[in-house]
């Protein structure tokens, strides 16, 4: 038969839309560069200008306490992205290492790690972050620990199942028979196959972490005032939504744009 994969409309392997990268890059650049043009900082209050629109000093206007929205947005975005990435990288590191251990050793190690990961799957991320928040005094550290404690499971499950089938594949069997060592096998056979799925998981992980941070801020058990954080800013500005819809729209739109961009980058790769 003719190779139909070449003829039939290929299964939609969508490329990430360029807009997703542009949006993400724009938000990140704004967050990194804003402090260069900003003169007020995120905490300085100019009470007379509370809820007023943009001017030369505060190009994105002022919040209800007369603080520069530009400075606060920049800090909030940096905080969320930095926390989300730190926890995702930590989780990926732990998850992949344990996944390799489980698929390599098998037996009891594997059974035990699977039982623990399956059980942690039963606990909502919010819950672990909240508990970590009581134990650790610093809110940022508690988010980092709590989020990583949930996110490692996905990386563990993915890397474990992929490694198990890859290790048994003829290609790896061949590499072993030909005398290649574990480092070569990992670099040439395992990692190239695992990378796309793990990157997808990482993009989803960062998006979920940002969502959790904002959600907890919104219900007032996350970051504490006066720290600029998107969820917290939304709930602070909510009472003034008639007077200054523009101010409320900023954290809402930034949060949605980041999540949409990350999700479409991740979704395109699956």
């Amino acid at each position: 038969m003719v190779d139909l994969t070449a003829i039939a409309p290929a299964k939609t392997v969508r490329r990430p839309a360029p807009w997703a990268f542009i949006v993400l890059a724009a938000v990140v650049v704004l967050a990194l560069l804003a402090p260069l043009i900003d003169q007020l900082g995120p905490y300085r209050q100019v009470l007379s200008k509370a809820l007023s629109g943009p001017d030369m000093i505060a190009p994105l206007g002022y919040d209800h306490l007369g603080r520069s929205m530009l400075a606060r947005m920049a800090y909030a975005v940096r905080l969320s992205l930095a926390l989300a990435m730190a926890s995702t990288v930590t989780a990926a590191f732990i998850g992949i290492a344990l996944g390799m251990l489980a698929s390599w050793r098998g037996g009891w190690t594997d059974t035990l790690l699977r039982l623990v990961s399956d059980s942690m799957l039963a606990l909502p991320a919010l819950l672990l972050v909240l508990i970590a928040g009581v134990i650790v005094q610093s809110t940022a550290v508690s988010f980092w620990i709590g989020l990583a404690a949930v996110q490692w499971i996905e990386f563990f499950r993915l890397s474990r199942s992929m490694m198990r089938s890859l290790i048994q594949s003829p290609a790896v069997e061949a590499a072993r028979l030909l005398g290649f060592g574990p480092v070569h096998i990992f670099c040439h056979h395992l990692w190239p196959e695992m990378r796309p799925l793990l990157l997808t998981a990482a993009a989803f992980g960062v998006a979920n972490a940002i969502m959790v941070i904002a959600a907890l801020g919104f219900v007032s058990v996350g970051m504490r005032a006066p720290t600029p954080e998107m969820g917290l800013m939304m709930v602070e500005l909510l009472p003034y939504w008639r007077e200054a819809p523009w101010a409320l729209a900023q954290p809402v739109l930034a949060c949605f744009a980041i999540l949409l961009a990350l999700n479409s980058i991740a979704g395109a790769k699956t």
Binding site: A207, M211, A214, A215, F218, V219, G231, M234, C255, F256, L259, L260, L262, N263, S264, G267
Partner: peptide, 9 residues
């Protein structure tokens, strides 16, 4: 896809 990016709050 859009709904996935929309936080519940």
């Amino acid at each position: 896809s859009a709904a996935r990016a929309m936080p519940q709050f």
